[in-house]
């Protein structure tokens, strides 16, 4: 979410997800039941967003335009490497898996894993709540005003720093949801951070910066492309095919699928 907001990039997004997953893992190791452990993981994601806002994003938001993009890119990329390196050094072989019990469920004659279905349901619910927040609440409209015109937002009395802080906290919370839902399908290992970041970045750019319906549409389309490529061609080529699909989309529609043309 932070990609489209205030012209800043968070390349440590995947690491936020992995750190949240590790908190869930260690909580469960310590005997905490799965549901409270997941709650702790979500709280961790939100807190990480707040910590980012209070630390490396402070100098970022003091700058405007290109300087803001570049500084956010450099600082968060550096942070991502540090977090990745630390986790790989200290707990190289750990991964979070959330086993959802029970056999597959038939959907239109296709057997679906319960974990996949639950993950999809949580994702759709999260998106619906997010969409409702941005569309129907005054606070959501205030955030949108900052996304669309930061100076204009200031002139109607909206404090952009507060809105940017809120969005980083929400972004961290969503990163934790990404980790938890992914762990229902496949293990979230300590080295997964950059893969999550790259996929999120591709989805955002293809969907259109700042467009939530665009991000959803791009996520679904690219997810299908990724799955087909992984199943029929090979996992080793799926990222290349994904990038090629994203590249073609951007060539045809530079503002993204549902982005606003400048």
């Amino acid at each position: 979410m932070i990609y489209g907001l205030g012209g800043a990039l968070n390349l440590a997004y995947g690491q936020m997800a992995v750190m949240s997953a590790m908190v869930v893992l260690f909580a469960m190791d310590a005997g905490v039941p799965a549901l409270p452990a997941v709650g702790l993981g979500l709280l961790t994601g939100a807190l990480l967003g707040l910590v980012l806002d209070l630390t490396i994003f402070r100098p970022v938001y003091r700058r405007q335009g290109e300087a803001r993009v570049l500084l956010s890119l450099l600082l968060t990329l550096g942070l991502a490497f540090v977090v990745d390196g630390f986790l790989t050094w200290r707990i190289p072989f750990r991964g979070l898996t959330l086993n959802i019990g029970g056999g597959p469920i038939d959907i239109l004659g296709v057997p679906m894993r319960r974990g996949s279905l639950l993950a999809s349901a949580i994702t759709i619910l999260a998106f619906a709540l997010l969409f409702a927040f941005f569309r129907t609440t005054a606070l959501g409209r205030a955030v949108r005003s900052v996304i669309e015109d930061e100076q204009g937002a200031r002139l109607v009395g909206v404090d952009p720093r507060r809105m940017l802080r809120l969005i980083l906290i929400m972004s961290g919370f969503l990163a934790a949801i990404v980790a938890v839902t992914r762990a229902m399908v496949t293990p979230v290992t300590v080295t997964l951070g950059f893969e999550i970041t790259v996929f999120a970045l591709i989805v955002t750019v293809v969907g259109g910066l700042g467009s939530f319906p665009g991000a959803l549409l791009a996520g679904v389309i690219l997810g299908i492309v990724n799955s087909i490529a992984a199943s029929y061609i090979g996992t080793f080529l799926s990222l290349i095919i994904l990038l090629a699909a994203a590249g073609i989309t951007i060539l045809l529609r530079p503002s993204g699928l549902l982005g606003v043309r400048e």
């Binding site: 005054a138 409209r141 949108r144 005003s145 669309e148 015109d149 002139l155």
Partner: peptide, 27 residues
Amino acid sequence: ALVQQTPRAFPSMNVLENVALAALFGR
């Protein structure tokens, strides 16, 4: 309050939502 020469409305909001935002936060 300032009104600039080039109006800067928020494009994703309708007319009422634009003004309501100012009524809510600009006080």
